[in-house]
């Protein structure tokens, strides 16, 4: 049984998306518990990728392929997980790239890492206007709102989104994270964000810290 989980983990680490999805389907067909497949196979794999990234043994192309495999593995797994979770609390993370900006790469990696940490990720996509962020916060009531940008001009939109959250009384109880190439801790402080995610791995760690160290 642990061999099957190790195979899934290996497929995720090596970025073999088709293989990862097939192995998960096989494991489900064999009747293995979805939560074990998730934790001991898929998440173990993406965590190993994170370790390799931190150790300078994996670089961005490797992480991209691994995140692809993670996403592919989650496709057959997610419906089964949702069915087994029932009413269990899962914290929501609404994320999007601010208006005028289309940089999807960092956000996609963050989404994969957040999903691996157990967040329900609501991805609003790219070029997201302020009003859509506000609407999503009202609709989904997330624990955390994540704002991304890759241009020094568009990142200024983040200030407006946070100001609007305050204006509409939505800021209390909501954590806000910012990230993207031109951002920094100083910028996060300046716009009144609760955390800055320097890269996808650190963004996930910060998100977990913001919700008290664990999720679900």
């Amino acid at each position: 049984m642990s061999e099957k989980y190790a195979e899934i983990s290996k497929a995720v680490v090596e970025g073999e998306d088709v293989q990862a999805a097939k192995l998960v389907e096989d494991a489900l067909a064999e009747g293995l518990p979805p939560l074990d497949i998730l934790n001991q196979g898929v998440v173990a794999g993406i965590n190993k990728t994170g370790e390799l990234w931190t150790a300078n043994q994996y670089f961005l192309p490797d992480v991209i392929l691994s995140a692809d495999a993670f996403k592919a593995a989650m496709v057959p797994l997610e419906p089964r997980l949702k069915a087994s979770q029932g009413d269990q609390l899962v914290r929501k993370f609404v994320i999007g790239v601010v208006q005028g900006d289309m940089h999807d790469l960092g956000k996609s990696l963050v989404c994969a890492m957040l999903a691996s940490a157990g967040f329900e990720v609501i991805d609003l996509g790219i070029d997201v206007p302020k009003e859509k962020f506000i609407e999503a916060v009202k609709q989904y009531k997330p624990a955390i709102l994540g704002l991304g940008a890759y241009m020094s001009t568009t990142m200024l939109e983040m200030k407006d989104v946070i100001a609007e959250l305050k204006k509409q009384g939505l800021r209390d109880g909501l954590k806000v994270m910012v990230g993207g190439v031109p951002t920094s801790q100083e910028f996060a402080d300046e716009v009144g964000a609760d955390a800055w995610g320097k890269d996808a791995m650190l963004a996930m760690q910060k998100a977990l810290e913001l919700v008290g160290g664990k999720n679900g």
Binding site: G100, D101, M102, D104, T153
Partner: peptide
């Protein structure tokens, strides 16, 4: 492309 009032044009790779 995405064009905006305050930022440079950018390709919409989506």
């Amino acid at each position: 492309m995405i064009y905006s009032d305050n930022a440079m044009p950018t390709v919409d790779v989506s």
